[in-house]
Design a binder for these strands. Sequence first.
DNA 1: CGTCTATTTGAATGTACTCAAAAGCGGTGG
DNA 2: CCACCGCTTTTGAGTACATTCAAATAGACG
Lengths: 195, 195
Amino acid sequence: MTASLKTNIETILGRPIEPVEVDMFLKLMFEKNFEKKDLLAEEGKDCSYIYFIVQGSCYSYFVEPDGDKQVVQLAIEGNWISDLFSFFSDKKAIYAIEALEPVKVLALNRHSFEKACDTIPWFDRFFRILIQKAYIVSQNRLAKTKSDEAETRYQELSKAHPQLIQRIPQYLIASYLGIKPQSLSRIRKESAHKA
Amino acid sequence: MTASLKTNIETILGRPIEPVEVDMFLKLMFEKNFEKKDLLAEEGKDCSYIYFIVQGSCYSYFVEPDGDKQVVQLAIEGNWISDLFSFFSDKKAIYAIEALEPVKVLALNRHSFEKACDTIPWFDRFFRILIQKAYIVSQNRLAKTKSDEAETRYQELSKAHPQLIQRIPQYLIASYLGIKPQSLSRIRKESAHKA
DNA sequence: CGTCTATTTGAATGTACTCAAAAGCGGTGG
DNA sequence: CCACCGCTTTTGAGTACATTCAAATAGACG
């Protein structure tokens, strides 16, 4: 169960860590389960946890004034998800996080986060790199959204994260790519013709 | 000269700090000057500094396969700029950083960064928040690029950072907004009519 | 099976793009 | 001081990609 967390930490830090060290970290977190459609965080309410997804999938989004849902992040097991703005500022969440399947997570609250910073030697660095990576991904996505066509973006996503295409509904993939479900449907039709 | 750095740190940390503490930090950095069009970092080469801009302006960008420049960040005095990917990975820079005016910066290299982490109590936290903020801005920009029209994005930028509109050439603003210079020109014409 | 939600398809529209060229602006040298 | 050059911004015309609106089909779930 905790294997995926260990792997995640080692990937981020770029070096192996001792099981004991993972246990220290695990003691600060608690397991939590959600059903499909449950909300792990709600827009407008405080988001006081950072989640590591052990099993299942979920996504974060916000709702536009016109009612349109905008997908911010898609995440399956082995990934972290939260509304960091809310978590670190104690302010209301900008995003909602919803389970797409039954989800098992490890949750870290603000108090435990502080404690992890103070007591686990590699935690500061780990977390900094985690955010850095997220930041770099975000900047890349921004660049791609501007320059590439929707079809290219879809194909790159398919190649980079085929699991997402399998498991996440198409209208959420569309939103994540920055297009409407109808457009993605047409793109897929086109791609099929070509192939 | 160092006043702007102190202000920046206090803004990020959300609390006042002692001048002595700023001095500790300053000792780890060195001043550097660039002329207009000088490169603070080059795509494909190692970017071994994080820059705090004391005076002047610059921007980071990358070049598409088809030769198109894509603006990633616009920055004037009081902001930080770097290619964090390169800085933290020791790999080749993804972005170039170019001075738009004569620029005076405080540069922090990798060694000093490590030292700052170890010796300045608030530095870890400071830097984490700095990246977090950048991450949140990036996610927001991503969301806006998808949902809002170019005209709205331009008007929001004008309102939020009027100094940028004044000092940065229009074709770079256009790229930052994710549109072509011609389109921005038309948008400005339209806006003028309305107003 | 029926209902609710997701996906597909069609037709018309719109926003931004490309290509092309003209006008504006700033700096340099004759 | 003006002429010229390079670079930025503007303008025009035609085009492309994605959107909207609308409706039909397909799938999931009770």
